[in-house]
Simulated scan of single mutants.
Amino acid sequence: MSTVSERPWSTDPYADALRTGRGPLFLRRGDGWLLPLEVERWCARADAVDLEVLGRCEGAVLDVGCGPGRLVTELAARSRLALGIDVSEAAVAHTVRLGGQALRRSVFEPLPGEGRWDTALLLDGNLGIGGDPRALLRRLAELLLPGGLLIAETVPADVDERVDVRLVRAADNQGPADATFPWARLGTRALLRYADTPAWRAADQWTAGGRSFVALRSRRRCSRSRSTISSAEPPNSRAVISSQRARKPSGESPVNDR
């Protein structure tokens, strides 16, 4: 595991919401502030805004925090190489049932194809993973090829917040005290500040359908050349759903994870 503490938010309310395809579901801050989670949109097919994002993706795509897998399965339907990772067993199982490739894994754990992904996605609030944007950006730079593309969805407001939250089913439910986990919310300006390092350069930013996005390019140098892979065998379904162990990537494909 990484030095960053990333507590799984795959609690029963989240699994139940994915199974039914609907909320309500919230992230609750300690002061009672609530962030509604868009379960219905996540469980639906990729919409026009999603398709615009996917049209910008290059080569092999890693969807970090893939949820129920609408983006991974859309890419698979287009014969694009894509892998989703998520700490939620229910999310990974849902993605696999839809025909996408996914692993139950934290982004801070060893992953297949490290340093060989062309594109990484951080959508649907997943910039918040781990509650430490600098650590998350450092990790994404390790996963991408030099010159690789990161597409991140930001909060459509000038926000830079790092807090402990818990997942709750209803606005009046405080949830168990031991279920809190670190989370972050970043607007575009905040993300660009964190990305102002030798590892990244800003490539683009845009809004669509009330959502905001930033594209960054990795400037990480590596000691040896790496090749982009255009095909891969589907991972073993049992390993996809249950794996939490650290494994070394095998073969030439970034998705191969036996």
Score class of each variant (00 low, 15 high):
residue 11 T to Q: 10
residue 12 D to H: 10
residue 23 G to K: 07
residue 23 G to R: 04
residue 26 F to A: 03
residue 29 R to S: 03
residue 30 G to T: 10
residue 32 G to V: 14
residue 33 W to L: 08
residue 38 E to D: 15
residue 41 R to F: 00
residue 45 R to A: 15
residue 48 A to I: 01
residue 50 D to A: 02
residue 52 E to V: 10
residue 54 L to R: 14
residue 58 E to S: 15
residue 59 G to R: 11
residue 59 G to F: 09
residue 61 V to A: 14
residue 62 L to W: 08
residue 62 L to V: 12
residue 63 D to V: 08
residue 63 D to E: 08
residue 64 V to T: 12
residue 64 V to L: 14
residue 67 G to F: 12
residue 69 G to S: 10
residue 71 L to R: 04
residue 71 L to D: 05
residue 72 V to Q: 01
residue 75 L to M: 14
residue 77 A to S: 11
residue 85 I to R: 09
residue 86 D to N: 04
residue 86 D to A: 06
residue 89 E to T: 07
residue 90 A to S: 07
residue 92 V to A: 07
residue 93 A to V: 12
residue 94 H to M: 04
residue 96 V to I: 13
residue 97 R to A: 14
residue 104 R to Y: 09
residue 107 V to D: 06
residue 107 V to G: 05
residue 108 F to A: 05
residue 108 F to W: 11
residue 111 L to F: 12
residue 114 E to G: 10
residue 115 G to L: 09
residue 117 W to K: 12
residue 120 A to N: 06
residue 122 L to C: 00
residue 124 D to K: 02
residue 124 D to N: 09
residue 124 D to R: 06
residue 127 L to G: 01
residue 128 G to P: 05
residue 128 G to M: 04
residue 138 R to D: 15
residue 140 L to F: 08
residue 140 L to N: 08
residue 144 L to Q: 03
residue 146 P to M: 06
residue 151 I to W: 05
residue 158 D to G: 00
residue 158 D to S: 03
residue 159 V to D: 05
residue 160 D to T: 02
residue 161 E to G: 01
residue 161 E to V: 07
residue 162 R to V: 12
residue 169 R to N: 12
residue 172 D to Y: 04
residue 175 G to P: 00
residue 176 P to N: 06
residue 179 A to Y: 10
residue 180 T to V: 14
residue 181 F to D: 00
residue 184 A to N: 11
residue 189 R to A: 13
residue 192 L to R: 09
residue 192 L to W: 01
residue 198 P to S: 09
residue 200 W to F: 03
residue 200 W to H: 03
residue 205 Q to M: 02
residue 205 Q to D: 07
residue 211 R to V: 04
residue 213 F to E: 00
residue 213 F to D: 03
residue 215 A to S: 15
residue 216 L to M: 14
residue 226 R to C: 03
residue 235 P to F: 07
residue 242 S to D: 13
residue 244 Q to W: 13
residue 249 P to H: 09
residue 252 E to V: 06
residue 254 P to K: 09
residue 256 N to L: 09
